[in-house]
Design a binder for these strands. Structure first.
Lengths: 351, 351
DNA sequence: TTGACATGTTCATAAGTATTAATTCGAATC
DNA sequence: GATTCGAATTAATACTTATGAACATGTCAA
């Protein structure tokens, strides 16, 4: 570890006396020229000068007042996934009690190593950083180098940081069980965020759940799109209808959507086309955000409660003591909840 | 000013050596008993021990790294008004360049004076606090007492703090001008957040705009609800239809909505009832958030861009030097933008 | 019982910092 | 040109802190 710089060294570098440096760094302004004042501070800061006598970071009650939030590339504040705001609410709820506040640091794209360093260097120590969504591994490692506790939600990064993730398998299992019980056998998948692992996980889980019931998911009934927003839900439903042949006995009766937003879009498509929900088609979504109940019909949906995910993340952060190299990382899986809404009903030809 | 305490004094008080105090305060843990470690820190902190060598508060670039955000009572993170996230995005965009981050402090309801003091006392100084929405005056005064720069967005508090607000009059003027040009003469108002001044301002502006064109707003065509969300937009439209007599020539052909969310709800109602938009009814909203273009049909809408409001708020905060008693407060009004969407068309009996 | 070892602390002193009186230096005044 | 004055800086030194070596003290195994 590099020996820390002294006032005398700063003085020598600038060609002034150590006394002057001392005066300046203690904040004396009168009787000191602005020029000296500024140049001394500049050099002191640039060289990472630290006072001697105590390093407050080490205080046992050195309260870490902040938790930073970083979003995965692609998410912006003004296009909040609903999920994000629920998670933030959960974080806030728990952290608030410990008088820790949440600070938005930016998106993966906004931040490079240098910027992060600037952001974190000049301020109170962070309790940790919550990563929202799948971030790239180099980015994760760069963050790790800052010696901050990292926690990833909605994506796991084995061996790199803690994580709190939803139970996708269980969600799909709940949805499929419900729909099969209602007599559905022909399923469609309306998938979003097709580039991300989350989409693969959900689609894979759907396949498994159906397979274990000897139901096959027709490849033509799988429609996947880029973003997974409302419009794309609409488009997916439209695309699905276009792909279908004329035989109505082949048409899927249960649309399983990647998220609630897409389900709403698909529902709007159904409304416009005069497809009755749930009489003709049942719509179900992997989601547990407010969107499920924002308006009637409420969505039939299953998913891990994002607020709970936020709460668990906060608890985990509060418990984690120190960032370290060879830590044991916790991967927490939050169970899924199923809620029967108004968009699912008995399969039409089952009655 | 009291002379500052030295390590030796701490050592004497605790009956240990100065060396030990030095070791402890520099964070050495191994080879030091927990008991000593904690008691030394306790006494050091209790006596306000400060290291010698520099007082960072005096650094010329002692930058204020944070801007706090407080929401009005009633808003929660997990029920984000869309507007809020856009404003936050605008704030973030500008503040990021100054390496200032935004910290969510809580809702009006979460915070009492004591809590605020705790939140703000133990950390880096805030550049300011952005208040989102109408907060109560006592709350505002309590915040003011903290000697922090305050800025209110979407609500003005004359003489108490800066504000950045939308131009409601202009928004309504733009909408009415557009609709009147299309031949509409029978208007309805679907209002939300009926308790807040914002609702009064919008409804009042609508009345004025119509009056100046010799159009009267029928009292029966004014429906106002509590929250202004999607479901209530739906309910408003339903209520409006219920209130109408049988005479179709009396029915309003232009629904002006308090915000985009309500417009979407109203549109869903129209879809369900088979009311064609915009052939039979035009829908317009005071809004400029993402909701206007989240799905087709895009909403015909006018409003001040919330992201711009955020940006202006951030600039104002960066410019404001110090909080003071008798400051001059800036009230900034951001102009409204009009965008013609797909929900407005010629008045039906005008063709 | 003894010695090896670990832990926690102190001693002694080198290194670093604060502070006051003294110095320098240029501008204004005589 | 000499004198005064004030701002800026430094010398000198008292005071504070860091740190390696030394010193207790207790534990454990031979």
């Amino acid at each position: 570890m590099a020996k820390r710089i002294s006032q005398s060294q700063i003085a020598k570098e600038l060609g002034v006396s150590q006394s002057l440096v001392s005066l300046v760094l203690n904040g004396r302004r009168d009787g000191i020229s602005d020029e000296s004042y500024n140049k001394i501070w500049r050099v002191a800061v640039a060289n990472g000068y630290v006072p001697r006598g105590m390093q407050p970071v080490h205080a046992p009650e050195a309260r870490r007042n902040y938790v930073g939030i970083v979003q995965r590339s692609g998410l912006k504040l003004d296009r909040p996934s609903n999920t994000f705001s629920h998670v933030q609410q959960g974080l806030f709820k728990v952290l608030q009690q410990a008088r820790i506040s949440t600070t938005f640091l930016g998106g993966e794209r906004d931040l490079d190593e240098k910027k992060l360093f600037e952001l974190l260097g000049q301020r109170d120590p962070l309790q940790g950083i919550v990563l929202f969504g799948e971030v790239s591994e180099p980015f994760l490692r760069a963050l790790g180098a800052l010696r901050v506790v990292l926690l990833s939600v909605y994506a796991s990064a084995p061996g790199l940081c803690h994580s709190v993730v939803p139970n996708e398998k269980q969600s799909l299992e709940q949805l499929v069980a419900h729909l099969v019980k209602l007599g559905h056998t022909r399923f469609a998948w309306l998938g979003g965020n097709c580039r991300l692992g989350r989409h693969r996980a959900r689609l894979g889980a759907l396949r498994e759940c159906l397979a274990s019931r000897q139901i096959e998911l027709d490849e033509r009934h799988i429609v996947s799109v880029e973003n997974g927003d409302r419009q794309e839900g609409f488009d997916c439903a439209e695309e699905l209808m276009n792909r279908l042949g004329d035989d109505p006995s082949e048409a899927p009766t249960a649309w399983v959507c990647h998220n609630g937003l897409m389900a709403r879009g698909a529902h709007q498509f159904a409304l416009l086309r005069g497809i009755r929900v749930p009489e003709e088609v049942s719509i179900a979504a992997v989601d547990r955000t407010r969107i499920c109940t924002e308006i009637h019909p409420y969505l039939t949906s299953a998913g891990s409660n994002p607020e709970v995910i936020g709460e668990e993340a906060a608890k985990l952060l509060c418990k984690t003591e120190e960032p370290g190299e060879n830590r044991i990382f916790v991967d927490l899986v939050v169970p899924s909840e199923f809620v029967e809404g108004e968009t699912s009903g008995p399969a039409p030809n089952h009655a």
